[in-house]
Design a binder for these strands. Structure first.
Lengths: 189, 189
DNA sequence: TCAAAACGTTGCGGTAGAGCAATGTTTGGC
DNA sequence: GCCAAACATTGCTCTACCGCAACGTTTTGA
């Protein structure tokens, strides 16, 4: 059960099995159905989740009621409403399983306890924050610098997994266009 | 010279003068003229900068040649091309002083050395990353969820300092519209 | 100090993408 | 295995914002 998580830590920090065993019991297994939510808008996020199997989606809903997907966490990645987790304020993001999934959940309190006491977890958190920041920045660059069709082409080339695994509706919300527009873009490819 | 930086550390970590003195000599004073660049697109970023006086702007240029401002670092804040600093790859961002400024510069190498050896600097870096991430996320929410005029109204209400201190051209690039559009939006306020 | 350059404004026309409606296609719960 | 509900496609129209051109105003540097 902890094998993928150990592998994740091992790759990033070179931690040994013994040290890992010292804290991995803070992570609890949770199974969750397709389309079920881990967190709704307005709730304060009190967990971090490592995806053993399946996929999480982090998304928001804007003023016009349009869903906007921020991030997908596939197997072997952490996923949470990071902004709410950090700020401890009501979340503007939803966290949802878009496939039947198996997660390793750690409470906020335990997570930050480990960040402050276990150097390897401190490093992992630093790494999560760095990658989350870089991803956001590239996202902004994309939204401000590329047309919707260029974004779709990029996705086709570099993230075919996303296209084959997810519904058009979800892909549209990730590209930041309506399903109507995505359908038209696909037609003119 | 180190007073604003000490105050910054003091507020965030409660550090004492003695510990601070142990590492503050890694920060070197640099004076820079208005509109001068600290980093150009394509260069690898090897520094972090604390703003004692003046203001830094981090921006990119998209495919159409349009400038897009990501972030302003006013007095008492750190500013750098964080993505390039982390990845150690050529930057897609420019770092520019938009006023005559006084900076405290630390090299990448010394900065990460301190992050790894001084708990208070580790915490400061964590805080910088957390805030940078949250700012990016709110930016994306804004770009995808609000019209340009709503963004301008928000700026008027919550960031009047930006509006009064900076040129329209720079403000337009921060709002993600052309100077033409900004001018028209101001007319219809 | 004064001319050149950069900046700001506004009229006009163009374009990417939104949104409704109507229709065809998948999907999943019983 | 079937039917309702969700999803996908496409024609038509609409809107926010872009981008040029032309002109007035401010800034700057020799």
């Amino acid at each position: 059960m902890y094998k993928p998580l150990y592998q994740y830590f091992q790759e990033k920090t070179g931690i040994d099995q013994n040290s890992f065993s010292g804290f991995c019991h803070y992570f609890k297994l949770k199974k969750i159905k397709k389309n079920e939510h881990l967190l709704m808008e307005g709730e304060v996020c009190t967990f971090n989740a490592f995806v053993n199997k399946g996929c999480l989606r982090i998304y928001t809903i804007n003023n016009e009621g349009q869903e906007l997907t921020r991030y997908f966490a596939f197997e072997g990645k952490f996923g949470t409403a990071l902004t709410s987790l950090i700020e401890q304020k009501p979340s503007f993001e939803f966290v949802q399983a878009i496939e039947k999934s198996e997660l390793l959940i750690i409470s906020r309190q335990n997570f930050y306890h480990l960040v402050d006491t276990v150097p390897q977890v401190n490093f992992i958190y630093r790494n999560i924050l760095e990658m989350a920041y870089i991803t956001s920045q590239k996202r902004i660059y994309d939204l401000q610098g590329q047309s919707a069709i260029e974004r779709l082409k990029w996705l086709l080339e570099y993230q075919p997994k996303i296209l084959s695994r997810l519904s058009s509706k979800v892909i549209a919300s990730y590209l930041g266009v309506t399903p109507y527009t995505l359908s038209r873009l696909k037609a003119e490819l």
